[in-house]
Nucleic acid binder design. Structure first.
Length: 613
RNA sequence: CGGGGCGUGGCGCAGCUUGGUAGCGCGGGUGCUUUGGGAGCACUAGGUCGCAGGUUCGAAUCCUGUCGCCCCGACCA
């Protein structure tokens, strides 16, 4: 989508020579130095004219691909009533504790939130508009600013508190229709990222606070990425570490046939214990005492057992506690707020005797919680299969400076239900093929698609009439792309020591014409002539008509990353100009008269993106 | 929220330890020279040293508080 030509003298181009102190990663520095963004507050940025052109180009690609799937563009309010969020059950979780929704009260004292996402609004609309299976499926999308009060905004546009997102919501009569659209979105997303010139990989993901069943993230691979992704070398498995499953290495067998008590003074950690007695960490069961806090009701102490050489995956744990909450076992406690290790000070504040930290065993009794002031008086006991499958193991004896050697689950009491709680690690064997191993890389999450199921439609009573005449809840999917984040991710993936190297499809300008010496009338006239003809051909061309020296103009052109540069210099009198490709640095001399036709031939396919149309 | 760091012309920084009339580079303006990879010379404008309070004859500098920004973490006792 061409956006029009422009002269640098009128562009308000303000580039910086030094790296700004506020930026840490390359893409953030380059966007600031190139005059693309300015920080207004922590995590809040002004998108300057150059970046706005990039964002419009990305948006145009997104629109094109969404529209061809039959999705409908719309625009939903950012200001949303609390009542909708209370009906879906997310108001407390999104506003209390670590909640990320900016919220406020209006003059009548009514509570409102600034939309961090739009499931509630769209589902309420669906309840109103969608009445019959004949209207389904339908997919609505929008591109607009989202607001999230992030715990820690960082890296410029990577994690902002106000950012631009494309979000789409689909509605279906049944699960198979949902799955069909989900697959169509998967394909559309791959085309979008490819057309934007991004190298992105799709990985299995945790669906997090949005909820639902299947979900997949699209990651732009980059060192600066915030997420760790694990992939198999055969390319058949990829997942965010939060979600990844793997086969743990086999434990070193512990030769024992009975349980003995061992004196372990000052041996509180797995390392100290292993070093002092020659145990392998895989022979030890470690026990974590954690506290889950809820929006309402008493906090729930957790006793989590893992094999000593394994790490807890906090996301899996939170999901486990969340699904336990939704079963009958729990009293009305509202949404899960957070899970943190219990400290000795917290134990004392509950009026309880100190817990045997450093010597905890999985058989720690509920009696140690008796009389707690505002905690549940019994543990929720969880254990990873790596721990429950050990025949004999080492663990804390629940008394200071004592451990058990050769303990077994039978002897300790009831065996906890095995539940995957461990973090998959690079090097672990893969579940789909144990001869494959997981490799790690870092990624920037630019897209995420979910099969939501009927979670929101049930909560908000969004039903439709089936062919048989029954009222049923709608099936839903949702699909997001971080448009502003994608722009920065593209810089992270496409730059060199001189600056940005935009892919043509999302570059603010496709071509820059640089007269080396603007005071030379021949050069100036030829540059103007080329500018005019490219403009007439619909190219997003920039003319550097400033009275700067050539070196300054070259440096700026490289910094802001225009993919093609035409230098009108010494050869102008003979009608010769130089064509330079930004990404490769390759140069060639051409006759100015032939240039427009030749360059258009290269440019037009590049404009459409790397993917064949 | 816990830990660390930083607030000094538009930008990047020094000065602070040991209190004594605020500096450097880049950028801006004017003029002359220069003109294919961030030019040179000359002149010039621009700062309540984040804010508030305190100590002192005197505070950018020392003390207290506060606001803002950046980074790390929020995981086995």
């Amino acid at each position: 989508m061409p956006l029009g030509a422009m002269r640098v003298s009128r562009l308000l181009l303000v580039t910086l020579r030094d790296d700004p102190a506020e930026a840490d990663i390359t893409s953030h520095k380059l966007l600031l130095r190139g005059g693309y963004i300015r920080r207004v507050a922590s995590g809040v940025y002004a998108y300057l004219p150059l970046l706005w052109r990039v964002l419009q180009k990305i948006s145009a690609i997104v629109r094109d691909e969404m529209d061809r799937t039959g999705a409908l563009e719309t625009l939903l309010p950012q200001l949303q009533p609390a009542e909708l969020w209370q009906r879906s059950g997310r108001w407390a979780g999104y506003t209390d504790g670590e909640g990320i929704m900016f919220h406020l009260e209006d003059r009548q004292g009514r509570q409102l939130g600034l939309g961090p996402t739009h499931e509630e609004v769209i589902t309420a609309l669906a309840a109103d508009l969608l009445r019959s299976y004949r209207q389904l499926p339908v997919n609505l999308y929008q591109i607009q600013s989202k607001f999230r009060d992030e715990i820690r905004p960082r890296f410029g546009l990577m994690r902002g508190r106000e950012f631009i997102m494309k979000d789409a919501y689909s509605f279906h009569a049944d699960q198979s229709s949902l799955q069909e659209t989900y697959a169509v979105m998967d394909g559309a997303y791959r085309r979008i990222f490819s057309r934007c010139g991004l190298n992105a990989v799709a990985v299995e993901a945790d669906s997090g606070a949005i909820g639902g069943s299947a979900s997949q993230e699209f990651m732009v691979t980059a060192e600066a990425g915030e997420d760790l992704i694990l992939t198999s070398s055969d390319g058949l498995y990829g997942a965010n570490q939060e979600r990844a499953v793997s086969i743990a290495p086999p434990p070193v067998p512990l030769v024992a046939n009975q349980s003995l008590t061992l004196a372990t003074p000052d041996q509180k950690s797995i390392e100290e214990l292993s070093a002092a007695h020659g145990f392998d960490p895989s022979q030890i069961v470690k026990v974590l005492v954690l506290l889950a806090r809820f929006a309402e009701g008493p906090a729930q102490p957790l006793l989590v057992s893992l094999r000593g050489d394994q790490q807890l995956n906090p996301v899996k744990l939170a999901n486990a506690v969340g699904s336990w909450l939704s079963t009958a076992a729990s009293p009305g406690t509202g949404a899960l707020l957070d899970i943190n290790p219990i400290t000795p000070a917290q134990v004392a504040a509950q009026g309880l005797a100190p817990l045997p930290f450093g010597s905890l065993g999985p058989h720690l009794g509920d009696a140690s919680l008796a009389g707690a002031r505002d905690w549940q008086a019994r543990f929720l006991r969880l254990a990873d299969p790596t721990a429950t499958s050990l025949e004999r193991f080492v663990c804390g004896a629940n008394s200071p400076d004592r451990h058990l050697v050769g303990a077994s689950w039978d002897e300790l009491g009831e065996q906890p239900t095995p539940l995957d709680l461990r973090a998959a690690q690079p090097g672990d064997a893969c579940v789909h093929d144990p001869s494959q191993h997981l490799e790690s890389s870092r990624g920037i999450e630019v897209g995420h698609i979910f099969q939501l199921g009927r979670k929101y439609s049930e909560a908000l009573e969004a039903t439709f009439t089936t062919e048989a005449g029954n009222q049923e809840a709608l099936w839903m999917g949702c699909y997001g792309i971080g448009v502003s984040r994608l722009a920065q991710a593209a810089v992270e993936q496409h730059h060199d020591s001189h600056g940005i190297c935009w892919p043509v499809s999302i570059a603010p300008f496709e071509l820059i014409v640089v007269p080396a010496n603007i005071d030379d009338a021949t050069q100036r006239q030829l540059a103007e002539q080329l500018y005019t003809s490219f403009q007439a051909a619909g190219v997003d061309v920039l003319l550097d008509d400033r009275t700067e020296r050539a070196g300054v103009k070259f440096k700026d052109a490289d910094l802001i990353g225009i993919p093609w540069r035409i230098v009108v210099g010494r050869g102008a009198a003979e009608g010769q100009v130089e064509l330079v490709e930004r990404s490769s640095g390759s140069k060639r001399e051409l006759a100015a008269s032939e240039l427009p036709a030749q360059l258009l031939e290269i440019l037009l396919p590049q404009r459409r993106g790397l993917l064949a149309p």
